[in-house]
Amino acid sequence: MVKRQFDYEQKVREIRDKLEELNNLSSNMEFDLSQEIESLEEKIENNRERRYKNLSPWEKVLLSRHPERPNSNDYIRYFCEEWIELHGDRHFGDDSSVIGGIGRFNGQAVTILGYRKGKDTRENLQYNFGMPHPEGYRKIQRLLLQAEKFQRPVITLIDTPGAYPGIGAEERGQAWAISQVLMTLSALEVPVIAVVSGEGGSGGALALAVADRLLMLSNAVFSVASPEACASILWKDLERVEDMARAMKITAHDLQRLGIVDEIIEEPLGGAHLNFPEMAEKLKKALQKHLGELTSQDSGELSEERYQKLRKIGEFRG
């Protein structure tokens, strides 16, 4: 049976609750168990550390989709002293699965764009589970050009299962909208830093990943298509999704080895959601560092370097 949820932390919690009970019980009786309990607690902690160091790629997929995982909105609120969200694509509508606006980051005005997932069913319905329609990509396109006009650096946050596969999305040109964003981002003269903060699903996610620096949280994943889709298409077997997740090389470390990811931001033990302030602070520091480096570069040089970086991706013979 393939695991569909990462429930390790829940099991740890259950054991800890039992220990707590035992602790209370022992204090009401004459024998003292506190030393044994302490050593058990230490064992649990060691076990956790080992466990999280050896997560399988599929377990990372599950963690990256964890319902409590911090979303783009959480990061934006943490990063920005001021934040104004902007809406709409000026063609058809406002896609709430994409959050975009202007913020003050470390004293500097920046444009931030991200895919937005919800935390509960109501929010997920509102944000379409983080899956944009063409309006979302056209909002991105508009705000990218706006950032260029006002020479604001761009920060993007990637956390989406992919572009929405629906009738309206196709009618309104999903492929056209995504391709325009790819082309626009590749030529912007302002600095662009992209962060894969959760799930990076396919071309719909890629639209925000064309950047001078691509950062990735240590439990995030980024894949050409979901492991489920690949397992069912290539192997006609959904039960082999764990093997597929491994074969596809989708983890931050795999992608750094492949030269696609520039820096990995380590998550707190157990994942970003277990200690959001620590995670957000670490990511903020990394963004500050890269932004500082990029801002000091000549803008023409910057876009040429980004271009050369993209141009080199690919391996072949002959």
Partner: peptide, 27 residues
């Protein structure tokens, strides 16, 4: 049929690479 799954993210990145070159062509 789309990006080649057997080449993973390297295949997906070809979307960005070809779009970037076409940006220059357009210019």
């Amino acid at each position: 049929g789309g990006a080649r799954m057997q080449e993973g993210m390297v295949a997906l990145m070809q979307m960005a690479k070809t779009s970037a070159v076409l940006g220059k062509f357009n210019q």
